[in-house]
Design a protein around this nucleic acid. Structure first.
Lengths: 333, 333
DNA sequence: CTAGGTGCAAATAATTTGCAGAGGC
DNA sequence: GCCTCTGCAAATTATTTGCACCTAG
């Protein structure tokens, strides 16, 4: 039985490339050369592809060294080994997008990538149900790509645009969530009888509107600077329970609730939304998209705090009026 | 570049084993021997494992023949080639469960299987968004299994119990859906003012209750006959949008609706539920679990028809009273 | 000086192929 | 007799190793 497995410890946050020379071996020499050439490429290289490339620039480098360097890179978390069932492994730089998945065309042998937090969430659930400690997950969809079926060249996401497409998708998701939040608060403001409560909701609606404006402006700037962006396929699939949350909240509002309940619903929505974007934002590598998610999470957090403050104030005022009823459920945290 | 790909055309509904001898080659001889030995095993065999097994029973069979038979089996849809990243391929009989996914323990090198219609649905969506024609999907979760971490032996699903565990899970899902349906109709009956409409909802509630009883009895019988079943881990992960549908429907009822709207909500729920179970039932191989899903789909269909009939009656009666308002949206189909 | 890095060629491992012979129809 | 199946050994491909040599700290 051969080579069993190059240490499967992938998907670490990887600091920066220059700082990881020491771990393991001495400084370096050809290693650097190979690494540099590897990182310069895009797509999924086979060991042999890399050999060729290296040989082209530096005649005196042996296949064995390339293989050894590849093993080191995988162990150090610089590269990821992927298997497309071709009888040989391929390698991809891992610093760009951790845990992305692949659509693999069996006709043209090209593969395109996608991110799906939805799929990840499901896999986490499944692993948890089986008490399985996940280190890595592989999702590969095999089939025929659009280009091969129709003969036309469709727009693809290449190495230079992934970052941008990711940022675009992050913005789109944030905007969608913001919209449903705005709708929720507008409706809540319309329903609330208490003048003070209404003011809070109006203020939140105004904030959402403003933030929505900011996000849309940013989106506009992004696509203005990169006109090809709008046509690119979706890279990040993320239904975002957050948008579901606000819709659900809005439905509850329609059932008719008192001011206190409305605040609690708002709190639930913002808490869910915050947690959600924080959690998913954190699992991405440093990038514009990640930053958008985390910023957005902070924004939601601020709203959450505001709502909680207001809720406390409301309960306090009620207490003062009729201390006996004070036993109303308090929001956690 | 080697062997590229054994025809990727897997996952066909496979008729029965005896009838697929002719396609391709002559009758057979050793082929049958190898096939028979392969099918008798459970788990994921490597080509070498199979060679050993075959050699043990029939000394005069060469490695090449085993490889060639394996290729033929994959092409004929009898076997599926799986790659766990060990440097060699493994093969599994494909007639049991099409498109299942794997949890692979990197410590003990064992793998357990699961089905997730939720993951499948997401992958379909993703493929559709990219205009990608899927032929096969691979989902592998690598990590450490419970046994390896805790040292204890947990209950696993082996070849003899998969069918039963699948049936168990199908029943559990059907029961959960039935429960939420029952709750929905009970609530609807309570809310409906029109005597006739109320009768319909009561009748449906009664039917759901009865069917629920049947399903629960069946579940009880199943686990009584196989006491080890209750402790087995979940095999089929299936949130079932259907249960979500009824819950959503019930929420809408709470908002306060008239009888006609209540019927429409019921129709929407049953239609969704029927479609859902039909669709997912169809993608399974013939098995008790599949039958449970399809039976359940039929049941929901009957309810749907009843609701539609009732809805039509209601509209007609209204028409007779005030023909002018006849332009109410009709349910499709 | 010394541990690890490197090249080359040989070793290993998984899988396929060429070819002569065997077997069913 | 034809056509495919088979076995064996040789070929191919991907990847690793042994070993002598080289090089940076």
């Amino acid at each position: 039985m051969a080579k069993s497995a190059m240490s499967q410890s992938m998907d670490r946050p990887l600091p920066d490339i220059s700082s990881l020379r020491p771990p393991g071996g001495k400084r370096s020499s050809k290693r650097d050369r190979i690494l540099e050439i590897f990182l310069r490429q895009e797509g999924h290289l086979s060991a042999d592809d890399l050999c060729e490339l290296v040989r082209r620039e530096d005649a005196g480098i042996g296949r064995a060294t390339v293989y050894r360097t590849l093993q080191w890179m995988v162990g150090a978390g610089i590269a990821r080994k992927v298997d497309f069932g071709e009888g040989h492994s391929r390698f991809e730089p891992s610093f760009r997008h951790p845990r992305h998945f692949h659509l693999i065309c069996t006709k043209c042998h090209r593969s395109s990538e996608f991110l799906s937090s939805d799929v990840e969430a499901l896999m986490e659930e499944i692993a948890a149900a089986r008490n399985f400690a996940t280190t890595q997950a592989v999702v590969q969809i095999y089939g025929t790509c659009e280009d091969c079926r129709t003969g036309t060249k469709t727009d693809t996401i290449d190495g230079t645009t992934t970052e941008l497409v990711f940022a675009r998708d992050a913005l789109r998701i944030a905007i969608a969530t913001e919209r449903s939040g705005l709708e929720f608060y507008t409706r809540a403001a319309g329903l609330t009888k208490d003048a003070r409560g209404r003011t809070v909701f109006q203020r939140l609606a105004a904030e959402e509107r403003e933030h929505l404006g900011t996000l849309e402006k940013r989106y506009g700037e992004l696509v203005a600077k990169n006109p090809q962006l709008e046509a690119k396929p979706t890279f990040l699939f993320f239904k975002g329970a957050a948008s579901g949350l606000f819709a659900e909240g809005a439905a509850k509002l329609r059932e008719g609730v008192d001011d206190q309940q409305a605040l609690l619903i708002g709190i639930k929505c913002e808490r869910g939304s915050h947690k959600f974007f924080k959690r998913y934002g954190e699992r991405f590598e440093d990038s514009e998209g990640k930053r958008i998610f985390l910023e957005f999470a902070d924004e939601e957090r601020a709203h959450l705090d505001l709502l909680i403050r207001e809720y406390r104030g409301l309960v306090e005022r009620q207490d003062r009026r009729s201390p006996a009823h004070a036993a109303v459920a308090k929001p956690r945290r």
